[in-house]
Design a protein around this nucleic acid. Structure first.
Length: 850
RNA sequence: GCCCGGGUGGCGAAAUGGCAGACGCAGCGGACUCAAAAUCCGCCGGGCGCAAGCCCUUGAGAGUUCGAGUCUCUCCUCGGGCACCA
């Protein structure tokens, strides 16, 4: 080894030594017998074509530093890494390249693994996961089956975005201003039959647990918003237009069936009437509202254009208009339709409903600002107190009525805009002058007594659509039999292997590419042996990643998804670090799957991650990194030039880890110089025997250990590094070769950041074992971490007038005496009398002059 | 519109209600060198001053306090998330 700091040489040496001596890997036996298990998890990457991005490396380095720190404290830290290699990203890249993903993805993974080995993280490559491995997705399919058997997976029709040019279904995120993000073609809405997981059944539990899990606050808030709990009431409005749907006619029978299916309320009907006729006026339209207190101001109703009742209540005179409007709405993509800036449009159905509070008949309209997916797909419109309803009422000249009076409003103060603030009720009959908050409850109760309402909670969260009409994912393990209907694939037949398909491109049919492979999907029914076909959709990538953390410890077992004993020992995850971009979907889905598996008896916990911390986002020279800007930082050249240790240290130094930072090429010289001086300072020390720390360095050392320990624990890596720099500067200012006790602890402090350098110096200091094999993190002595003298700040009337060194623990009187003898202090007191003295021990003295 | 974060030197950033600008980058001056690079030493928010020191300064304005970058209110602004969610 040469005298100069040579990162390339050192890093190669230690990476191969770690691997040869199995420093970072556990055997399955190690996992079973570990005494102080600590599961340190980071979000696994999808192995993109471009390779490891500096954003990945930033995330992984910060997480690895935490893991290495816990290991230096003597814990058995399990730090696995894997690949989220299924999904549309990988498939689209394969399409672009014209190479089948089944051939392309393995080479991406290989490239990624190579890069990951170079960043100096302590990954356990004995326990890795690749979601495209049949031995992995076999268990993804198994989880689907468990949900199916528990009644938590169901197939239903749902609207999707369809690009007629690319022949594919698009996620909402892929639709930009109503057009396909790739080709610019306007997107259409199509209805397809899809598999859903009933995550809404878990909405309240997912929300409740957020109060106690130890997660970044912003992430908890994001989940809370996403779940979107609203409290209010469901109120029923009786239709008051007297049309009938007669039994025995085709239309009448179809209507009666719809009524039964959709649980529209039927009341006050004799058996005889039921068998003959359904009167539209016997139907109720349920609406959800968070403002039952404003019901006296509901002057019309609006249904979503797709609402089932529309075709039955529309009058012949309005039918043409209504049909035209419905068609137009159906042709519109979901994104454009949900645009708030769009002008309100709508059509009157000709029908009326009775407001249960005022007993007035109010018109029923349809409009696309009411969404079928939320609530009941119908609203009571209160234009006086809802901005959207106000806009609609103004446009179509519908009555606007004030029913809430804010401070200073009179009963008849006209409304120039919707008022949604606090107030008391007006124009509301017996509820007049009641406070709006109280009235919410009172009116709901009053209507409930008359069977017209009940209190209700609604969630914004939708069921999780897991079907993908694409190729690159795990086939959904379901078989459709002509005789037996929907049959789950028997668990003993798993995995349902994704076949190699030459033409895996999606086409205009909207049907999965697997539907073109007859020899694959046509199979005998596992129950009756009759004609049957496989489900040809694959599942969402988010399902792959919803349980991968359960798989890591058991990654080497093929007969079980997760071994119960290892799971009990290692899970839930102790520390999870990842990007805020997954704050909602991935983190919510994995919480949901964990809860389900717990309810089904497979797990003993229901929250997968004890702690979650988000890391910040890296930008480059003040702007976002993106391929189009051409400013994406690829770590390889930097590591080659500066070494992984310098690169890691720089990434952690450029800003607070949880907030991100601005990457500038020039900035690397700072940490590079630091590590170079570190080397120069410590190499000569190895030739000396032990000697204690001397002078001010001992105090400074203990203070630094405290600072670095606290900062690393709180992921404040930037200030931890600054503290080490300060200490190193102090050692060098001593102007002599340092004593061993002055610098050996510093080698340990820097080890999580620059593990190769630390190992090398540790060895040169005479240690035989890797420093990551023992409990080596230095412990500070609180008594030694403080100085004997303190610099007192003396203020006069709150302004700094002097700094005076005084012994620690000095009394107020003594400090005051010292202060009063200071010339500058005297000058500012200027003969005035000291009216008040503020004394902060060992810190500050403030003399207030009257 | 709603919910989170931010706004501090030329730049990245520090600061349990108690010395604003730690640490680093860039810059300037010096040493070494024939020279350059590397390395080392010094200076480095603005203004006044020979100096001691003084005044100003944390997006804007008010407030609480002996004392505010930090707490409260109002506003401006940037970033992120959600969004006709009834």
């Amino acid at each position: 080894m040469s005298d100069e700091y040579n990162p390339t040489e050192i890093e190669a040496k230690w990476q191969s030594r770690w691997s040869d001596r199995a420093i970072n890997t556990f055997s399955d036996e190690d996992l079973r017998t570990a005494e102080r298990p600590f599961y340190n998890l980071m979000m696994f990457p999808y192995p993109s074509a471009e390779g490891l991005h500096v954003g990945n490396m930033y995330a992984f380095t910060g997480a690895d530093i935490y893991g290495r720190w816990r290991r230096l404290q003597g814990e058995d830290v399990f730090e696995p890494m894997g690949f989220d290699a299924f999904g549309i990203h990988s498939e689209n890249f394969a399409l672009k390249k014209g190479i089948n993903p089944m051939e392309l993805i393995p080479s991406n993974i290989e490239n990624f693994s190579r890069q990951l080995r170079g960043i100096g993280a302590m990954y356990d490559w004995n326990h890795t996961v690749d979601t495209t491995d049949p031995q992995y997705y076999r268990w993804t399919q198994w989880i689907f089956l468990q949900l199916f058997k528990a009644g938590l997976a169901e197939k239903k029709e749902a609207p999707v975005n369809w690009c007629p040019s690319c022949h594919t279904v698009l996620a909402n995120e892929q639709v930009i201003a109503g057009a396909c993000e790739r080709c610019g073609t306007p997107v259409e809405q199509r209805f397809l039959s899809q598999w859903f997981f009933k995550i809404t059944d878990y909405a309240q539990r997912l929300l409740d647990n957020l109060t106690w899990i130890d997660w970044s606050e912003t992430t908890r808030k994001a989940q809370e918003n996403w779940i979107g709990r609203s409290e209010g009431a469901e109120i029923r409005f009786r239709i008051s237009s007297p049309w009938e749907a007669r039994a025995g006619t085709a239309a009448g029978d179809a209507f009666r069936q719809r009524v039964a299916e959709h649980a529209v309320q039927l009341e006050n009907m004799s058996e005889d009437e039921r068998s003959r006729t359904v009167w539209v006026q016997d139907l109720f339209i349920p609406v959800f509202t968070t403002r039952p207190d404003t019901i006296f101001g509901a002057t019309f109703m609006v249904l979503a254009p797709e609402h089932e009742l529309v075709e039955w209540i529309t009058t012949p005179a309005q039918r043409g208009l209504v049909e035209a409007y419905r068609e137009q709405a159906a042709g519109m993509d979901l994104v454009t339709r949900k645009k708030a800036e769009k002008d309100k449009t709508g059509v009157f159905t000709g029908a009326y409903a009775r407001n249960p509070a005022t007993e007035e008949d109010i018109p029923i309209w349809i409009a696309d600002y009411v969404l079928m997916e939320y609530g009941t797909g119908a609203i009571m419109a209160v234009p006086g107190h809802d901005e959207r309803d106000f806009e609609f009422a103004t446009r179509f000249e519908l009555p606007i009525r004030r029913v809430i009076a804010g401070p200073g409003d009179r009963v008849d103060t006209p409304l120039g805009q919707a008022y949604d603030g606090d107030g008391t009720l007006v124009n509301s009959g017996r509820f007049d002058s009641r406070d709006w908050q109280t009235a919410k409850r009172d009116i709901t109760e009053w209507l409930a007594q008359r069977q017209s309402a009940e209190a209700r909670v609604n969630y914004r969260l939708h069921d999780w659509c897991i079907s993908r009409q694409r190729y690159w994912g795990p086939p959904i393990p379901i078989i459709y039999c002509d005789q037996c209907g929907t049959v789950p694939v028997p668990e003993s037949d798993l995995p349902v292997v994704l076949p190699y398909v030459e033409n895996y491109k999606p086409d205009e049919s909207g049907i999965s590419p697997l539907a073109r492979v007859e020899e694959w999907y046509r199979i005998p029914c596992p129950q009756c042996g009759g004609h049957a076909r496989r489900e040809t959709d694959v599942s969402d990538t988010f399902l792959d990643s919803a349980w991968y953390f359960l798989r890591y410890p058991s990654a080497r077992f093929n007969d079980v998804a997760f071994d119960p004993e290892l799971t009990r020992k290692w899970l839930p995850v102790d520390m999870y670090i990842g990007g805020e971009e997954h704050a909602v979907l991935h983190l919510l889905y994995s919480r949901f799957i964990t809860m389900v598996l717990k309810d089904l008896g497979y797990l003993e916990f229901e929250e997968p991650y004890k702690r979650f911390r988000k890391h910040g986002l890296l930008i480059k020279e003040g702007s976002k990194m993106s391929k189009s800007r051409g400013n994406v930082v690829i770590p390889d050249q930097y590591i080659e030039k500066w070494g992984a240790d310098t690169f890691r240290t720089y990434l952690m130094f450029l800003g607070p880890y949880q907030e991100g930072g601005d990457f500038r090429d020039q900035g690397l010289t700072g940490p590079a110089g630091f590590l170079g001086r570190f080397w120069d300072t410590i190499v000569p020390v190895s030739e000396l025997g032990t000697a204690p720390a001397t002078g001010g360095l001992e105090q400074k050392l203990h203070a630094t250990i405290k600072k670095v320990t606290d900062d690393v624990a709180g992921l404040r890596y930037n200030t931890a590094i600054a503290a080490m720099m300060e200490y190193l500067n102090a050692v060098r200012e001593a102007g002599r070769t340092a004593n061993r006790d002055e610098v050996e602890p510093l080698v340990l402090l820097v080890a999580p950041f620059a593990p190769h350098l630390a190992e090398e110096l540790w060895e040169q200091l005479g240690h035989k074992e890797s420093l990551f094999t023992g409990k080596h993190w230095p412990i500070y002595d609180p008594d030694k971490a403080i100085t004997d003298t303190v610099e007192f700040v003396v203020q006069v009337n709150g302004k700094l007038r002097a700094r005076i060194a005084m012994p620690r623990g000095i009394s107020q009187d003594a400090a005051q005496a010292a202060a009063l003898s200071d010339e500058n202090v005297r000058r500012f007191i200027n003969g005035g009398s000291v009216r008040k003295v503020v004394f902060v021990p060992d810190r500050l003295l403030n003399l207030v002059i009257g």
